[in-house]
Structure formats: C-alpha cells, structure tokens
Design a protein around this nucleic acid. Structure first.
Length: 770
DNA sequence: CGTCAGCCTCCACATGAATG
DNA sequence: CATTCATGTGGAGGCTGACG
C-alpha cells in the first residue's frame, strides 16, 4: 500500500471495509501492544499475573502460552480482547469513566485512556461482527474520525510525538490498497458474513428447540459434580445456608464418563429414576439421620465443574455443614455459597456481630469502589454490603457471613439465633447477638425484610439504584493518578514496542507499522535506564507504578517522607538513589547522609531515616524494575508488617492526608466478569450440549427458573441433558469452565448470544487465515 | 440494654543522642 | 561520619463506665 492522491471515497465500498478491517485486526492491536510494552514491560507480566487472583485462575491455555512466551516474543500476537483483559485486571490504565464494559458507549467528553481502550474494544467488535461488508463513504469517514481521535489521544498519553499513531490512520484512510490485499480482505469478510448467517440460523433453531422443551420440565435442583477418582454412591451433606445437598457421585456418572466429551459448564438433568434413587438414598443414608427431615429431590442438574451440590427442595435444619460433610464423605466438596463471588446488586443476608442475619444488597464501598476483598491467600475474605431497612447502612462483612437472600434462610437464622443465644452465652461476644434483639431492632428487621421482599423481583441494576451508598467513578482515589490529556505521561519509552504483531505477510502496509526498537531485546540495565528516563519526565507515572506494585503485594506505601518536618517525595529519593547507583551502592559507599542532605537542603544529621524510608517504600520496587530478587524483599516487608491490615494501602497525597487507593484490578469489576463468565459458559453450553445430546437420546432442555443467569440472558439458561448423570470427564473440562468470558467484549449482555456467534465466527476466520 | 465517649495499651515510626 | 539505640509521638483498637 502506498500513499496516493486518489481518495478512498472513490474506491469500492468493500475496499472501505477492508481498510476498517485492517484497523480492527492490525492497527489497533499494534497500538495496544505498544501500550502494553510501555505500561507492563514483558519481564514483569508473569509476576503480575501470578499476583492477580483473577488472571492467575482464569486464563485460557492459549493465553497462557502467549504469556509464557512474552519474554521472547513480547506482546506479539496479543489480540485486543486479551490486552483489554490484561489492562483491566492489572489496572494498567485509568479505568473508563463509567467503568469497564459499561453498557453505554463512552461519550465524547470521556477521554481517559481507559475510555479509549473501551472504544477500541467496541469498534473492534462492531467491525468484526459486522454482517455487511459494504461501508459507504460517510460511514467510512465516521469510522476514521473516531480512529484518529483515539489515536491522537493515545499518542499523547503514551508520550509519542504528534502524529505518531494518527499519521498511520491518515495514510490508511487515503492510500491505495493493492488488488491482492483488497481481495484478501473481501474474501475474509465474505467468510465472516457466511459464518454469521450460519450461526444465526443455528442459534435460532436451538432457541426454538429450547422454547419447545422449556415447558416440559419442572423445577430444578442443582447438582455440581466433583471429579474424584472414585465416586461414592451416597448423597452427602449440604450447605447450611443454601440447602445445598452435596453429592459425591451421581448414580450413573461413571457409566457415561466417556460420552461427555464436551462438558464445560452446563447443567444436566437427571432421570426420574435417578431422582427417585437419590430420594431413596437420602431417606436411608446417614445424612438422613443428621438432617432429620426427608429431603425431596425434585430434580437435579449436573454442573460438571467438578463440584457436587444439590439444592434440596425442603428446608433443612442448619447444621455444622462442614463437619457433617467431612463425616459423610471425604469426596464432598466443602464449598460454601459464599466462596463464590456474589455480584453487585445481589440480594443477600449478611451477619454483623451483634445482629441476626440482615437483608442486604451487595454493593461497592462508596469510598473505594471495592466490592470485595481477598486475603493474603487470595481467598475471598470480605464483601461490601448495604443493609436494608428504614435507614440504610453499609459495611464490610466477612465472606462466610454472607449468603443469598431467601425467606428460608431468614427464618432459619432467626430461629437459630435464639438457640445459639442459649448455647453460646459464653461466646456471645464473638458473633451472635449479645442479647435478644430489641423491639426497635426487630421492627427495623421487619422493615428491611419487607424491603428485601420487594427487591426480590428487581434486577440487580434496579436494586443498586435503590441503594443509598453508591460508588461513583469520580470519587475514585485512583483519579489522583489518572492521566489527563495534559501532563500525565507514563512509561515513556522512546520508540519502543513489539511490532511483531504483524503476523501475516498478506497484510498490507505492515512495514509502515513496524517500530525501530523493542524493549524485549534490551538488557535489564537498558530497560531500567529507560524506566528512569521516563520517570524523570513524569513523577506521577513513578508514583502510580510504585503504588500499584506495593498494593498488589499487600504492602502500604508512603509517598512522602518527613525528615525534620521537611517533606521529601519518594520520587525525589528514588532519583537521588538511582543517580548514585542504587540502594546497594549507597549503602556500600555510605552516602545516605549525602542523599538526605541533598533532598532536605540542610546539613542536619540523617540518622537511619532515608535508608529506612527507602527500604520500606521503594527498595522492593527498585529490585522489581531491575530484575532483582524483589520477592525476598517483599517477604521481609510483609513479615515486618504482618500485623497491619492487609489491603489497606495508604498513600499520602499532596496535601499530606492519607487516602485509600483502589487500583487493584483484581477486584475492580471482578464480580461483573464472573457474571460474564457464567453467562458465556452457559451460552457455550447451550449450543454444544444440544448438539451433543441431539446425537444421543433426544433433546431435553431445561431452564433453571431461579437461576441468576435468567436475569443475564433471559431464555437461555442451564441446559439439561437427558437424564443421566454424567461424570465430568476431564480436567480439560474444568479449564474450559474457567475460561475468561469473551462476552466481555460484547456491547451488552443482551447481545451476548450474537456475540458468541461472532466470536465463533472470528475463530473460524482466524483459523482460516492460519 | 444499647450506645458512645473517654481512657488505656500497643505498635510503628521519627527523631536525636550515643557509639564505633 | 555512619550506624545503633533510646525516647517521643501519634494512630488504631479494645475496654470500661456513664448515660439515655
């Protein structure tokens, strides 16, 4: 492709499409790969992912391969969805004004880097999912206006010279496309269009099947199957809060092991005979003795994500579930409902010290925006909830004290609280109410129950709107570090990037997009030098990165030292130390006093202050960016500070006051992503299972009426296979279940089905190209 | 009986004197 | 002059008693 005077406007409509297609498939990925290289140098990626709960658990095998090869290949072959996922979870950019994956398109006034990434994702989806390969001139011009706006902002944000990205778009917009390239793109999009139509037809057919079968089935009991080596045929005990019956084996599971190759995350209905058998076993088993009530298993669904649970239809007495489960079967998964992430807006019962379970809504902390917290073992430890009632309050509640709201749970808790009160007088300080609830409290509780009952039928969004304490992005403390168009540049490596994203010789004008140097090729010294160069240009970038690093490692950070009442910034200290060769050099040459005096502009005696401050706040980061043994240093710091609460990263801002910083990508939107994941899984399951089961003994599709999924995408829910319990065959299935939802790249949940189709199409196209 | 303010203790950190 | 040690300071959290 060479620049030409002939305008794109005069070219065929399909050529226009080829151009915007190139942007979506090549130019945007290249920009984002460059952004990634600057914001997350490849040598840090593995470590950061390991420190990220979500990413370390949810990456797909193909994504893991890319990450494993990142040290050699850089961000080559990282596509937009994957980069979006990394940026979002590692918090590499300031989040979009309305948060990630918001239902509405960023408006023109929203111009954070995150907003632009969000725009890129949407544009990419819009282009790739476009059924129509004809782009008229006005549409074409609109597309390129958007492209250039985004490119302009990103080049400023990344500290590139003016036109660094924009010029490439200008070239692409106006240059000629050679015939071959044009044909290649048209062919590609023809294929896309065809796949689109096929998939739509297929999905419509499936939906019809589903509709027809929906009425045939009754209420559903959910069973999750664990893949133990050997199954036992007894139903075991259940979750005390959720009435979950944990079953270690489904009677026919082992028979069908091999026939369920496609198991991912679907739910499978069991036969009536199996159901009867379960009921029988429940009546006769040891479980029955503990439960003391017969459990009528109305129906069972198998969720082959290797865990067995069964929702019994009757209310079960609260028991020490964990112990019982242990006694009943070693194979039973000890998994409480609260181990799952509850998403924002979910109606729950939360137990606060001194109170009974109280109806509440899962919300974000109005100050930090956090919805939940992980402990140091990356286990979910706390949820933020807003309590319902005449006057709403909000609080952080331990995860094991939160369960889904239901009247049964409510009643159980109340009847039990009085028993507990009798039994646990000695322990009353721990969790139970000190005394019988006062009349006032009971009245409040009644009101809150009424409110909760009213909320039951509302959507999560509607519930959130009724909440008093709401988190707004504008309040986000991370805003302090947010990049505005003016000023804030970050990771300003000169002319760096992994250009290698240019994957195919077929692509036109690739050479234009290639860059001169790549960080990947640089030695650690060179990289560090570039880091420092960048830091010199921008203090905030350093402070942001330092804070992010420390936060991720559960360490607090103080960005301003006060020596003899003279404030000294961490950044100035870092530069001063760097100029003298780093921490070790200064210690060796005993230059801490010199550093101290230089920074305080005094001749005072330093004492250990500068050294200690550096050790506490900066040294681990210095090791981190220089590929040193920062982990040992982190261990030392963590050991020293273990008594401090984990997760409360305090950053001293310019005014000297301490503020919480919420820039932990782990939690930001995690629950929303989980919902996406489940939605995606159920959608995948829909198609795959129906196909699989069609081949077997006829279709039997079941919808989980009460499923939260129904709110996400009405009409497409759990899919039940015919009648047998199948053993979820392999760990591969499990991994599949953990796939990060690709639906996060769809515009909204409403479009999720289409999006699935589109992504499948995309894969087809990509495979074709390979 | 529940709430809340005041007091106490503990801990981390800064500072400055003492020491090598 | 760098390092070590003792002391002072401030914040967080727990306990207790007064009050409504």
């Amino acid at each position: 492709m060479t620049s030409s005077s002939s305008s794109a406007a005069s070219e065929p409509l399909s050529t226009n499409f080829a151009r915007i297609g190139h942007v979506a498939q090549q130019m945007f990925p290249d920009i984002l790969q460059e952004l990634m290289t600057m914001k997350e140098p490849p040598h840090r990626l593995s470590h950061d992912i390991n420190n990220n709960w979500y990413l370390s658990n949810k990456l797909r095998p193909d994504e893991l391969i890319l990450i494993n090869n990142v040290a050699t290949n850089g961000y080559k072959n990282f596509d937009i969805p994957f980069i979006y996922k990394l940026v979002r979870n590692l918090n590499l950019l300031p989040p979009p004004t309305n948060g990630w994956n918001h239902s509405s398109v960023p408006c023109p006034t929203e111009i954070t880097a995150g907003d632009d990434l969000e725009r890129i994702r949407r544009l990419r989806n819009e282009i790739l999912h476009r059924g129509n390969a004809q782009v008229n001139d006005s549409e074409f011009s609109q597309f390129f206006t958007q492209f250039k706006d985004i490119a302009g902002r990103l080049e400023t944000y990344l500290g590139k010279q003016t036109g660094y990205f924009v010029d490439k778009f200008v070239d692409l917009e106006t240059c000629c496309i050679d015939e071959e390239t044009s044909k290649m793109y048209i062919k590609r999009f023809d294929g896309l269009k065809k796949s689109d139509e096929d998939c739509k037809k297929r999905l419509n057919a499936l939906e019809e099947d589903a509709d027809a079968l929906k009425e045939k089935r009754g209420p559903i009991v959910e069973v999750k199957i664990e893949p133990p080596d050997e199954f036992e045929q007894i139903p075991s005990l259940l979750d005390e809060n959720k009435n979950l019956l944990y079953v270690t084996k489904t009677p026919e599971a082992d028979k069908k092991k091999s026939s369920r190759k496609k198991d991912k995350d679907g739910l499978y209905q069991i036969k009536k005979s199996t159901k009867t058998q379960l009921q029988k076993e429940l009546k006769t088993s040891k479980v029955k003795q503990r439960v003391q009530k017969s459990v009528s298993v109305q129906d069972v669904i198998v969720r082959p994500n290797f865990q067995v649970s069964c929702i019994a239809s009757t209310d079960l007495p609260q028991t020490k579930g964990t112990n019982c489960r242990k006694k009943c079967s070693q194979k039973v998964v000890v998994k409480k409902e609260t181990d799952d992430l509850l998403s924002e807006g979910t109606l729950v019962l939360a137990k606060l010290d001194g109170y009974d379970k109280w109806p509440a809504v899962m919300t974000r902390d109005p100050h930090t925006g956090l919805q939940f917290e992980m402990d140091s073992n990356r286990q979910l430890s706390m949820y933020h909830v807003e309590f319902l009632g005449p006057s709403h309050t909000h609080a952080w509640i331990k995860a094991d004290r939160v369960c889904l709201y239901s009247k049964d749970n409510m009643n159980d808790s109340q009847s039990q609280s009085s028993e507990k009160h009798q039994k646990n007088k000695v322990k009353k300080k721990l969790t139970s109410p000190k005394n019988k609830p006062s009349k006032v409290v009971l009245q409040k509780l009644e009101k809150s129950k009424k409110e909760a009952d009213c909320m039951v039928n509302l959507s999560r969004e509607q519930r959130l709107k009724l909440c008093t304490f709401r988190f707004f992005q504008d309040n986000h403390e991370a805003e302090d570090f947010q990049c505005k168009d003016s000023g804030f540049e970050s990771w300003n490596y000169p002319a760096s990037s992994g250009s290698s994203a240019i994957s195919s010789a077929e692509n036109f004008a690739c050479s234009r997009l290639q860059y001169n140097t790549s960080l990947v090729d640089k030695s650690k010294e060179e990289r560090f030098k570039l880091d420092v160069e960048m830091y010199k240009k921008n203090e905030k970038a350093f402070l942001h990165d330092l804070s992010r690093f420390m936060k991720r490692n559960n360490l607090s950070v103080n960005l301003t030292a006060h020596w003899h009442h003279i404030p000294v910034g961490a950044f100035q200290l870092f530069l001063a130390v760097h100029e003298r060769g780093g921490y070790q050099e200064i210690c060796k040459k005993k230059q801490w006093t010199a550093v101290f005096r230089e920074l305080t502009e005094t001749q005072l005696s330093a004492g250990p202050a500068p050294k200690n401050f550096y050790l506490r706040n900066i040294y681990a980061y210095e090791l981190y960016v220089t590929n040193g043994d920062f982990e040992a240093e982190l261990k030392r710091l963590l050991g020293k500070r273990k008594k401090k609460s984990i997760g409360d990263v305090m950053i001293e801002d310019d005014t000297g006051s301490y503020t919480n910083v919420d820039d932990d990508a782990d939690s930001d939107g995690l629950a929303a992503m989980l919902a996406d994941l489940e939605e995606y899984s159920s959608l995948c399951q829909l198609e795959e299972d129906i196909e699989a089961e069609k081949k077997r003994m006829g279709i039997n599709i079941a919808y989980h009426e009460d499923s939260p999924y129904s709110k996400v995408s009405p009409g497409v829910k759990y899919v039940s296979t015919p009648s047998e319990f199948d053993c979820p065959a392999s760990h591969g299935n499990h991994k599949k279940h953990q796939e990060v939802p690709e639906t996060m790249f769809s515009d909204s949940s409403v479009d999720s089905q289409n999006d699935l189709v589109f992504h499948q199409m995309e894969r087809i196209v990509d495979e074709d190209l390979l």
